[in-house]
């Protein structure tokens, strides 16, 4: 059984690797020589330098912009010193702002690309010429930041970062400058320990967009490949269980929990457990007004049996019996 299980993941891993090797070999062939031709198409697609005559070099830039000299930058000074970026050596400023000769000669700010005031999409495209590693950019189609014109520079700053990686502020503080409502949710008594520093927004969310949140609007950071981030810490809820509780898998944890903060114990979305359960576990069609018929496909869930006499406190506390409500190895009704 172990070998059978192993085959599929290995194949899934090996096939792209093989394809990549073939592609790399092809790319390293004659096509590689064309990269240095500097044609306009390639310049947009990758950070290839324009003809040297249009560049003035970082030293010239530093003459006026001394505070932003490459050697004072936290990370982008690597452009000058790292071998793998040698083609930009001495032109770190222009690797982002474009050729600066016209600007240097005229001091006209309109003659050089400035991130300040540039349309968000255009500014981000400039960063993505280098920073397009798959996991950062492949989720951008799903990224609420990109869709809402929040440029890279809204959170990152090259010239005066306050935290890694090139952040304009400490991560949680930076997020709540826009997500003010989420900040207030963390004031509530039952909450994840974000304010106390135990976790960070980016432990759960991927600010660069992620398809994992495809079932919700949140941009989740994946755990175990493509599972919800909650399961990285709450690993006992992940399963697989012999008996899964359907909405845990299909609706996600937020079907029952408020992940940021709640006034209800266990961060539940209802004040008492029984209402949380009964809102789903009510047989479709039952209780319809006389003559009414259910339309469309009925939702999932069933009515509790009649011996669950809700007048008794025993039955009003559903999870004292259904103790394995997230999923059970042995009991279809989550009792053990």
């Amino acid at each position: 059984m172990f070998v059978t299980r192993l085959k599929l993941p290995l194949a899934l891993f090996a096939l792209p690797v093989l394809g990549l090797v073939v592609w790399s070999l092809a790319a390293a062939g004659p096509g590689q020589a064309k990269q240095t031709a500097g044609d306009q198409t390639k310049q947009e697609a990758a950070p290839q330098p324009a003809p040297p005559a249009e560049y003035v070099g970082s030293e010239t830039c530093s003459g006026c912009h001394a505070d932003f000299a490459p050697d004072k930058l936290a990370y982008h000074k690597e452009i000058d010193v790292v071998k793998r970026l040698s083609e930009w050596k001495g032109r770190a400023c222009e690797s982002c702002h474009g050729p600066g000769k016209a600007h240097a000669e005229s001091a006209d700010p309109k003659l050089i690309f400035s991130f300040k005031g540039a349309p968000a999409a255009k500014a981000s495209q400039t960063c993505l010429k280098c920073h397009a590693q798959g996991l950062r950019s492949s989720g951008r189609a799903f990224d609420a930041h990109a869709r809402n014109s929040v440029a890279c520079g809204s959170c990152h700053t090259v010239h005066a970062p306050k935290a890694k990686p090139l952040l304009a502020g400490v991560p949680n503080g930076l997020c709540v400058t826009c997500h003010t409502n989420v900040k207030a949710e963390f004031f509530r008594p039952y909450r994840h320990r974000l304010v106390e520093g135990a976790i960070s927004c980016i432990d759960c969310h991927n600010p660069h967009g992620s398809p994992i949140g495809g079932r919700t609007t949140a941009q989740f950071r994946a755990s175990h490949g493509n599972e919800q981030p909650c399961l990285k810490c709450h690993s006992d809820k992940r399963g697989p269980f012999t008996f899964e509780h359907v909405p845990v898998r299909t609706e996600g944890c937020s079907a029952c929990h408020e992940p940021h903060g709640s006034v209800n114990p266990r961060m539940l979305v209802r004040h008492q457990v029984r209402f949380l359960c009964l809102e789903c576990h009510t047989t479709p069609g039952l209780g319809l007004p006389a003559g009414a018929r259910p339309s469309g496909t009925a939702p999932m869930g069933q009515t509790p049996p009649a011996f669950h006499d809700l007048r008794s406190p025993r039955y009003r506390n559903c999870t004292t019996c259904h103790i394995k409500i997230h999923g059970s190895y042995m009991s279809g009704i989550f009792e053990r």
């Binding site: 993941p9 899934l12 198409t41 994946a222």
Partner: peptide, 29 residues
Amino acid sequence: TFFTRHSATLRPFRWMDLSGEFLFNQPSL
């Protein structure tokens, strides 16, 4: 569990970006 995660971003033309991700995990109990 074994899991894989592969992503690709392609920019064949200056006016086009293609990207995709394939994710797979197979937990057993």
